[in-house]
C-alpha cells in the first residue's frame, strides 16, 4: 500500500528510528512500510497518522483497486 510516510518524515526532519520508537515498532517496519512491502495494521496506521497530526487517509493511500472492488 502506498503511503506518505517517507515524505512526511523528510518534511518534519524525522529519522526512521525516531518514528519507529515513537510508534512502537522497529526501524525495519518503517522501511518496509515506505517500500510498500508491508501493510500496517489499523492500530499502527492510527499511531503513525496521529504522530504527524493527520488522519489515516492523509497518510495512507486507499485508492488501490483491490480495496475499492470489495
Amino acid at each position: 500500500m502506498k503511503s506518505r510516510i517517507q515524505e512526511l518524515r523528510k518534511k518534519n526532519k524525522i529519522s526512521q528510528e525516531e518514528l519507529a520508537n515513537a510508534v512502537g515498532v522497529t526501524r525495519q517496519t518503517i522501511t518496509s512500510l515506505e517500500n510498500e512491502k508491508y501493510v500496517a495494521s489499523l492500530v499502527l496506521a492510527y499511531k503513525i497518522a496521529k504522530y504527524f497530526h493527520l488522519t489515516i487517509e492523509d497518510v495512507f493511500d486507499f485508492s488501490d483497486e483491490e480495496i475499492n472492488t470489495l
Partner: peptide, 12 residues
C-alpha cells in the same frame, strides 16, 4: 523499551 518494541513489533 528496545526489547518491548522487538517483541511487540507487528511485522516481526
Amino acid at each position: 523499551k528496545k526489547l518491548y518494541i522487538e517483541e511487540k513489533d507487528e511485522r516481526k
